[in-house]
Amino acid sequence: MVRNNKKLLIFFIAISLPFFIISSPDWLKINGISPCWPVICLLPFSLKNSRLISAIASIMLGIFIDSFTVSDASYIPSLFLLSLVWSQYGLHNKKIELFLNIGLMAIFGTALVGLSIWMQKIILHVSLRNNWFHSWSIYVLISEIIITGLVAPFFSSWLLFTFKKN
């Protein structure tokens, strides 16, 4: 059983994550926006593991996700920060796998990731500084938060159970 769970875990992270990012299925979108997959994967891993391991995992995950996007802004700073916060929060015998709790943490995580990318875009592109209140950014941020908040309780809870069993 433990071996099976481990296989599932490896399968989900190594195969399903890039598959979801590339294919971005329409049935998992709100207003054309996909869930924030790095947050969904990092959340259970950081809750279960120590600060150092989580930080290393977040950097590796950030590098991996950044390879699927066009240049400039990066996921690494926000994921690194989230890994530190979540690993500090940890499980500590909490019933963290409860749906709402996981969903709420994913919502805050996605908001931080979105704001970080938004800020990076403004810093990197001079042309975007003329108009700081971008309708597009608000649109993407809110849509991503909603869809991640809906998806995370299912995927992250399952991942957390699997991590705990392993």
Binding site: I22, I33, T69, V70, W118, K121, V140
Partner: peptide, 14 residues
Amino acid sequence: VISRASRSWWQQLE
């Protein structure tokens, strides 16, 4: 077009 992210933070096609 094999992948499309036309509304995300990065707007790109594969």
